[in-house]
Design a protein around this nucleic acid. Structure first.
Lengths: 393, 393
DNA sequence: GCTATTAGTTCGCGCCACGAACAAAATCTT
DNA sequence: AAGATTTTGTTCGTGGCGCGAACTAATAGC
């Protein structure tokens, strides 16, 4: 139950009912495709006549196409409907400190084209590099009308102004990424924090989360980010900075974090932490990368395994807090660490179980990195503009 | 943006628009009363004609009454509308380990009658004690039609079955409070955890939180409970156990908690913790109550002040986690500790500021205990059934 | 008493879902 | 092979509802 926000609501007009039912039908087609009009009526509870009018509208607007005929034991054969893969294109941009990936996807979340470029240090330079790539990728398939651009960032985005507030690993501050991209392409641009994007990807494309109303995405890389979906909705906080559980304290009077606090979770459970555990406090000439440590651990190197185990323990410590406090159905782990899940998973699960007797139902699962969760999240970001629940009252 | 839950949605009918606009008008009357039809049209964006039809409906259903005429600089004088205080009664029941309070309130959240009874140890006995009281309180004012009963509990309620799962301080488990009360009174009964109820009270009756979309209520008594409202909505978790931040770890390898974990927040920041700080580890013959410690601290007793300060410090430690992780607009503190807020408030604020540079915007405020936040929450629980945003799609 | 202004109502129009009736297309029965 | 049966999809009249123009009611200023 939600309270109506009297500072920001929408009254219903005569078209409101259609808006709502249209979205429902569109979503039913998305999740049951191919599906006949008669089945849509059965699933939705709408009359067949109403479904017919709505689908006709969706077909003329090219969201949906009529496909092959189906087959029923007896009676007239149904005409199957499915999402129009050939129409809508969505561009996703995943910005990471080293490289930026951009991709063109259709409504089903399948990537049609994908390319990378180095991420320039200066955000203005970055925009200049990006724009020609964007223009070319939208023209890969002429029949695809591009509906929008989704952007995933390692940083926080102000939820009202949609400006980048701060991206520590890029050292970008108060930068408006949205406007220049919108001006250059004429397409709507949606920005989102990477962890939030991953959570959205799971909500819209995940197989595990059909009924998950609460999930937390934990991105583990140089730092730790958390994306919260509670009551089927992304939690951004009014200033857009919710989900910074990476900077909650797990070690009293611990190591100083760049956020100014001491003993933050990400100081003990991030990739950088594992590298520190491996090298010890002594400054070495050539610092290994996290990939090195991970590879060594995979090969059975005892010291590397020890470092990874410590990191896994602390991942569990932080996740126990999330499990106890939020009791999500699902915690989704994103990052290189998932490559060693056979080793890491049990440690995390055990640590969480020891510390959170209250709630055993949360499943902690790794994402398949080949599914490009961040990039998929950018697609979801645009997709939800067309498939999300209509905002009413 | 919410994803439509295809396992549980509602299509729009021809009456849906009216449902939505009716709720909007009802809420505008609630928050702007007294208000004229013309002003309602201006605030809502609906046509005056539409507002007239809707208000006529609300008047015939006795939700709203027409009051005195207003006054405008020139032109016909408006007829003011306001909520019908004389019609709707809501019964609230606040169950606490020692005593249970029940009250009758009108739509404005004003208590008309209030009484208490000792809370029986056995839940079945408790029900037997309660039912005659309930029946009598609903008949205090014959003109008030009772719309429902709200119950606040020191424990967790399963969100689907609405059964009490576990109330540690009452030692009640898996008990169905709802059905016997509904059968005895014929009224709909809504159960809710006390911290959640307090959060609801603030959302629906608070003055501070007009625009607060995210707030956390922290109830501090024998234990610590947290009620989360994020995106204007209560977060219950799919199993109804979200918001157990009281059992997240704040001291590594700390004191054993009855939840099975070690070093839980409530072991260090609850009333019981303060008593422990005061008495020290030595077992004393007569253990002081928290009220005693609080009174002594108020009188300037150094040892008591020290105990309260330590408790306040740990309250800050836990709240820093909430601030960093959830970035709420407001943290609401409920409990006896607020009586010494002049002393406690600054300690909490300082501790949170030290540990959460990321988010300075959260206001941490005490509730006035005379406003009966738990009891008010039970009223909100029923109120939202009639004033909450209609569930659509 | 006339004019300007504001409040509230009446009424025709168009959007929309409903549901009965109907057309279309398949299988089953005889 | 022809009619009966079943299922799909369309057509059309009905009623709910918001819109907005026109209208009535009521008040203050001139």
């Amino acid at each position: 139950m939600r309270k109506i926000d009297l500072t920001n609501f929408r009254v219903a007009t005569s078209e409101t009912a259609r808006h709502i039912n249209r979205r429902i039908v569109l979503n039913l087609i998305r999740s049951h495709q191919p599906i006949s009009r008669a089945d849509l009526a059965r699933h939705s509870g709408l009359q067949r006549s109403t479904v017919s009018v709505i689908t006709e509208q969706l077909i003329t607007e090219r969201w949906v196409t009529e496909g092959a005929n189906g087959h029923v034991p007896r009676g007239r054969r149904p005409r199957f409907l499915h999402l129009n893969k050939e129409r809508v294109g969505i561009v996703g941009i995943n910005i990471r400190p080293a490289t930026t990936t951009l991709a063109l996807a259709n409504l089903d979340g399948n990537f049609i084209a994908q390319e990378s470029l180095p991420t320039a240090e200066d955000p203005n330079k970055f925009i200049q590099d990006l724009i020609p790539r964007l223009k070319s990728i939208t023209q890969v398939r002429s029949e695809l009308t591009c509906e929008g651009i989704g952007v995933s960032l390692p940083g926080r985005v102000d939820s009202t102004s949609q400006k980048l507030v701060f991206a520590p690993n890029l050292d970008w501050r108060d930068f408006d990424l949205k406007s220049p991209l919108e001006e250059a392409t004429g397409l709507p641009v949606e920005l989102e924090n990477a962890a939030n994007a991953c959570a959205l990807a799971e909500i819209w494309f995940g197989r595990r989360s059909e009924a998950a109303q609460d999930l937390v995405a934990v991105t583990v890389s140089e730092g730790i980010g958390t994306g919260l979906v509670l009551n089927h909705q992304l939690v951004r906080g009014s200033t857009g900075v919710a989900g910074e559980f990476g900077h909650t304290t797990v070690v009293e009077n611990g190591l100083e974090c760049r956020c100014g606090n001491r003993g933050c979770w990400e100081m003990y459970a991030s990739n950088s932490a594992a590298v520190r555990y491996y090298t010890g406090s002594k400054p070495t000439a050539s610092k290994p990368t996290f990939d090195d440590v991970l590879r060594l651990a995979g090969q059975g190197d005892a010291k590397a395994l020890e470092a990874i185990s410590t990191m896994a323990h602390y991942l569990g410590v932080g996740m126990a807090m999330l499990v106890t406090g939020l009791a999500p159905d699902l915690i989704l782990v994103i990052g290189e660490i998932t490559r060693l899940w056979d080793h890491v998973g049990p440690i995390i699960t055990r640590t969480v179980a020891e510390r959170s007797q209250t709630h055993a139902a949360t499943r902690i699962v790794p994402t398949d990195p080949t599914s490009h969760p961040r990039l998929l999240g950018t697609i979801a970001l645009v997709l939800q503009q067309h498939f999300g629940a209509p905002s009413v009252a």
